[in-house]
Design a protein around this nucleic acid. Structure first.
Length: 785
DNA sequence: TCCCATCAAT
């Protein structure tokens, strides 16, 4: 019987139909009852080498033959592999060789030790090609192990090959070292480097550069510098420059660059690269001015605006939410020949989103599109995000189609953003459909995708489904992170599924501080601020500012001032500065309770800590002192605020005016004293200042004035004020009417009072106690008539 | 086989 690959292939095809009749092949799929070992073909002494060698001029044929064999569970023996490897190597099919080796390593049933292959190849290869081949194969083998992240085995290959008398190539070694760095195994690189001599290997320039890189990654800049002295290779210096930048030593990198320039060791493209690294370093160190000055330096050296360096600077400005600076720099660079691209555009769009200026982001997206600037899927993604946050997910989907029509393929981030859009709108079913679409186009959801989805379901009250999603995610081998747990906890809480949230929280094996924060926030979210406080006060670690703020405001709203103060005190303990608004809220609450002492204490604390109270806080304090008849303190604060450049507004003036008017001797018709005179003077002083400031009067202010006129029985003027108020477009409120009606009643002008009362009742203003009292008064007076 | 590649999702 003569064997040829084609024959075997046709037999295989037949074999699918009648496997049992075949001598050589048992197709596992058709014999499910066989044990694992029996499922594999008993190849016996079948001469694969002959088959392979017979097709040595037709790689495709041989490979498809082997492919078919593999499908049927046939394993090659070590000699067959050796032949195959030799052939692949002679055909120059390096990539195929790599994948065959990867497969070989992964095949646990191969029945021989991988290093046997080297020995076998040594035996089978032709004399003149042997050593070259062995180097090639051992290198490929090391690479194969590296690609499987089996680093120890890869290093072992180097040593074993050496033992078998073949020296692996330094290239393979460099490759291995590079990958080791990629996976953070810098110590292994250094160890391997020390053993190179033992392996009979000579480090080349690349090796030095790689080891310098490894040392820099480790943070051992000194060792890197020392090693650098041993090599004159320029690109090793650029590696070191990069290392300095990555270790927050960009300043030193700059010095080195200058030295290298002076030594004429760095010029042209290499120099541009080094400068770009320095720019990146400064940007990472938030030294953006220094970064910009490097651009000028580059310009002096005749290097035009480098698009990467410029993009980094623009992006830094954008991340700092400093759009004017970003645009200023961009425009300056555009004039110098920089070309606008989609990366820069995306930074700008993203900046708007960060500042919650979604409309502006969309506007600019459209502008750039109209200007025919190519926008990539990152730019589209920012637009998706903006639309999603605005609740316009349908438009985002339209945009997705537009993007796809332009030939761009959406990635997992695009899908996740859109998914979030659906979840924000509560359209969880659409979100699930989108996951299907996504899977359909071959993209798997990642941790963030699942986090968005689980959070979306939780927030929308679908507790059970959220948990199913959470479990699915784990079942797919994805590891939920703290954020995943947090969105679950906070989502469930905000949907008032407190019990579910607590159960979920309890189920977490390793609770991190962030998880506690989320439960605190969650309790707040569902109005359980006391519960939140209890949990909060037990935790002895600093939290994010937003947690304190949320808990604090909720406690204030629900009137637990002492607890809110305890939150502030906790912040001081951890050296976290409560912001102006927290102080403001607390001062306001204390003032509401007329606790001016505590309020003043907090006010002073705030000032001591360098925070200047705002207009509202000042006004609240002034108002409180007025209420408590501590006019001197009110006055002092009033002067203080003006000195700080805070302009009093209509409310501040009204508060003071109201107080002074009430103290005015005319108010008490008969009394007249020196003290009264002072007050009178003060009243007109405030009034003068008020009108001079050109501030328009509001309803409350008019009402104060009207009330005043009513009280001193000047009803004519009160009515005049009332008319003026209406003419200036203001709508009188209950208090205004009450003041007027009471005034007219007091004077006995019942008709007038009734007129105003009916005018008021035609309007849709709900009566207050005062007004009811006025109405009763009117009724009584009418009776009297 | 080296340095560099910038922007987006919880």
């Amino acid at each position: 019987m003569r064997f040829s690959p084609t024959m075997l292939l046709s037999q295989l095809r037949l074999g699918r139909r009648a496997a049992s009749s075949r001598r050589f092949f048992a197709v596992s799929a058709l014999s499910p009852n066989l044990s694992d070992s029996e499922q594999h073909l008993k190849v016996g002494n079948f001469d694969f080498n002959r088959v392979l060698n017979s097709s040595r001029n037709d790689p495709n044929l041989a490979l498809s033959f082997l492919g078919q064999l593999k499908q049927h569970g046939v394993s090659l023996n070590v000699n067959a592999y050796a032949t195959l490897v030799i052939l692949l190597s002679s055909w120059g099919l390096d990539r195929k060789l790599d994948s065959v080796l990867v497969e070989l390593i992964g095949n646990e049933k191969r029945g021989f030790c991988v290093m046997d292959l080297i020995a076998s190849i040594g035996e089978e290869a032709e004399e003149d090609k042997r050593s070259l081949l062995l180097v090639r194969v051992s290198s490929a083998l090391a690479k194969a192990y590296v690609s499987l992240r089996m680093f120890d085995e890869a290093i072992d290959v180097l040593f074993q090959s050496n033992r078998l008398g073949c020296v692996p190539s330094i290239k393979a070694c460099n490759f291995l070292m590079n990958r080791l760095i990629e996976f953070g195994k810098t110590d292994m690189v250094v160890a391997l480097f020390r053993q190179l001599k033992q392996l009979g290997l000579d480090a080349n320039g690349y090796t030095y550069a790689i080891v310098v890189k490894a040392l820099c990654r480790k943070g051992d800049l000194e060792a890197a510098a020392k090693l650098l002295e041993m090599t004159p290779i320029v690109f090793a210096y650029t590696t070191f420059i990069e290392g300095l930048c990555a270790n927050q030593k960009t300043e030193q990198a700059v010095v080195l660059v200058k030295e290298l320039i002076d030594m004429k060791a760095l010029a042209g493209n290499d120099l541009e690269t080094a400068y770009s690294m320095v720019v990146r370093g400064f940007c990472n160190e938030m030294k953006i001015e220094a970064a910009e000055s490097v651009i000028l330096e580059m310009e002096k050296a005749g290097i035009g605006p480098n698009v990467y360096a410029c993009s980094l600077i623009i992006d830094r400005h954008c991340k700092n939410m400093n759009l004017p600076e970003a645009m200023g720099f961009l425009n300056a660079m555009l004039e110098k020949g920089l070309k606008l691209n989609c990366v820069i555009v995306s930074s700008i769009l993203q900046c708007h989103c960060k500042m919650k200026e979604y409309m502006e982001a969309l506007q600019k997206f459209k502008e750039f599109k109209d200007r025919k600037i190519f926008l990539d899927r990152v730019c589209y993604n920012v637009a998706f995000d903006a639309l999603s946050k605005l609740g316009r997910v349908e438009e985002a989907i339209e945009l997705l189609h537009e993007m796809m029509d332009k030939g761009m393929v959406p990635d997992v981030i695009n899908y996740t953003t859109l998914l979030d859009g659906y979840c924000l709108r509560g359209k969880v079913v659409d979100a699930l459909d989108l996951i299907d679409d996504m899977r359909g186009s071959g993209i798997s959801p990642d941790v963030i995708t699942y986090t968005v989805l689980a959070g979306g379901f939780a927030r929308n009250g679908h507790a059970k489904e959220a948990l199913v999603i959470y479990e699915t995610m784990k079942a797919e081998g994805l590891k939920p992170n703290a954020v995943t747990h947090n969105v679950m906890i906070e989502g469930l809480c905000s949907a008032r599924k407190i019990e579910e949230a607590e159960d979920f929280f309890m189920s977490l094996e390793n609770k991190c501080p962030e998880n506690y924060c989320s439960l605190v926030k969650g309790y707040c979210e569902s109005g359980l601020s006391k519960k939140a406080f209890r949990l909060f006060i037990e935790q002895e670690f600093p939290m994010r500012k937003s947690v304190y703020f949320k808990l604090f405001t909720n406690l204030c709203i629900e009137g637990y001032l002492d607890k809110a103060l305890a939150v502030m005190e906790r912040m001081w303990v951890y050296g976290i500065e409560p912001g102006r608004s927290m102080y403001g809220i607390m001062i306001g609450e204390l003032c509401r309770l007329n606790n001016a002492t505590e309020a003043q204490l907090l006010f002073d604390t705030m000032v001591t800590r360098g925070l200047i109270p705002n207009l509202i806080t000042y006004t609240i304090m002034i108002h409180t002192y007025c209420r408590l008849n501590e006019l001197q303190k009110a006055d002092d604060l009033f002067e203080d605020m003006k000195q700080r450049g805070i302009k009093p507004d209509v409310v501040t003036y009204t508060v003071l005016l109201d107080k002074y008017l009430k103290l005015d001797p005319e108010h008490h018709e008969t009394s007249c004293s020196v003290r009264g005179e002072v007050r009178k003077r003060k009243t007109s002083e405030v009034w003068r200042e008020f009108t001079a400031a050109g501030i328009g009067l509001d309803v409350v202010c008019y009402t104060v004035l009207i009330d005043r006129q009513c009280k001193i029985h000047n009803l004519e003027y009160a009515t005049k004020l009332f008319d003026r108020m209406i003419n200036s477009g203001l709508e009188p409120d209950m208090v205004t009417y009450t003041a007027l009606i009471s005034g007219y009643c007091r004077k006995g002008y019942i008709d007038k009072a009734v007129t105003f009362f009916t005018e008021l009742s035609r309007k849709d203003i709900s009566p207050t106690g005062d007004l009811v009292a006025a109405a009763v008064k009117i009724a009584t007076l009418n009776e009297g008539l």
